[in-house]
Design a binder for these strands. Structure first.
Lengths: 207, 207
DNA sequence: CAACATACAAACATCGCTGTATGTTAATTC
DNA sequence: GAATTAACATACAGCGATGTTTGTATGTTG
């Protein structure tokens, strides 16, 4: 029954797809490896060959998501006179559009939002937190630049602006994913970002 | 061994306190009822006498949190010339202060943030979603009123303003609770709310 | 002060699921 | 083309926890 390397990769992919489906429907905690195996058309042996355990399987599910090119964005912001708000707003919009189009991303992020974050799954949360931290640092740096250009108005600090942006995007995504995707996230997100960035550049109030 | 009614209530309270402690430290999924029983100084028998199962225990933990007087707030907003933004900003601030002071609330909300939301725990999430929905409706109604008073500027709609407010408060609380409470949520929250409400009343931009 | 209900403790019955160890077949490797 | 090893399937061992049932002593009620 030995399969060729290409077939093995195929099997691994099938397992990931099955895990996505089963975990999404039953929840990570309540789906057994046997459930996943059946959905993938293999036995648990195959799963334990490709993945160490359930936590590893979930982690690989997360890793299977292609992440947006952050370096490319960073380079765009390098220029002295870069339009920071323009770039950030566009990037945020693109992220929401990416999520709106990619059902795999939707399901995997839903799984992660709803699963337990303690014990063996803590590594996954930490992973997400690390990425989040990097994003925050990049965002804050960008807002520092905008501030240097005299474009950050109101009582905003780079940190407060970055936090607010992240909360809005996170809130938007969480609500959309956990609540049955009952609105057009791309268009509503576009509007929300529009309003938010408008407030960043508002003049400092006198009061 | 039969205890008096007062003693029974006492036992129930001890179990809730133990559950809070144990679930917070080990996570709902990885703590056994035996763990909770030991921490409470009783046997599992006592727990199953007072609570149907683990999900019920967690739900009662959530129910043990006194919720802010929403009717009182609603009444404050009833007046024709009510200062909607002033009231909402104050209520938000008070909520953050309440959380900052109450360690039980902190631990219980942390537990709920990190636990699995599928299967038997779905009822708890639904409960929270219902409350969230009510809040959103109340918020939206309040912003409608503000709009009627001509106070809602920018490109804000009552709904978008309400959503943004909720995302900010949720983001603030989640980040604080999940990330080790590493900042002064009351003071930083106050600032964030200040900035946010300032943007609500900003004049509609010409661009 | 019976009779009953309450508030638990202790014992029981399983049971699903996990991880591993072993078996088997077919690709690779040399 | 023999030896090796990759890619699984199958069989196994064992646990840890859950919900329930039974036991029992003590409040409570009429």
């Amino acid at each position: 029954m030995r399969r060729t390397k290409a077939e093995a990769k195929e099997t691994r992919q099938q397992i990931l797809l099955a895990a996505e489906k089963v975990f999404y429907e039953k929840g990570v905690a309540h789906a057994s490896m046997e459930d996943v195996a059946r959905a993938a058309g293999v036995t648990r042996g195959a799963i334990y060959w490709h993945f160490a355990n359930r936590a590893d399987l979930v982690l690989e599910l997360y890793n299977s998501l292609p992440m947006p090119q952050e370096e490319l964005i960073a380079r765009e912001l390098e220029a002295e006179n870069a339009d920071v708000f323009g770039v950030l707003e566009r990037v945020g919009r693109e992220w929401l559009e990416l999520l709106a189009e990619d059902e795999h991303r939707q399901r995997i992020l839903s799984i992660l939002l709803r699963c337990d974050h303690t014990g063996e799954f803590a590594v996954i949360s930490e992973r997400q937190n690390d990425i989040d931290d990097e994003h925050m640092q990049a965002l804050e740096a960008a807002f520092v630049k905008a501030q240097g250009q005299g474009k950050l108005g109101g009582a905003w600090t780079p940190r407060s602006a970055a936090s607010m942006l992240r909360w809005v995007i996170k809130g938007l995504c969480s609500e959309w994913l956990l609540f049955g995707r009952r609105f057009d996230i791309a268009s509503e997100g576009k509007d929300a970002l529009r309003r938010l960035f408008a407030t960043y550049s508002a003049p400092t109030p006198s009061t």
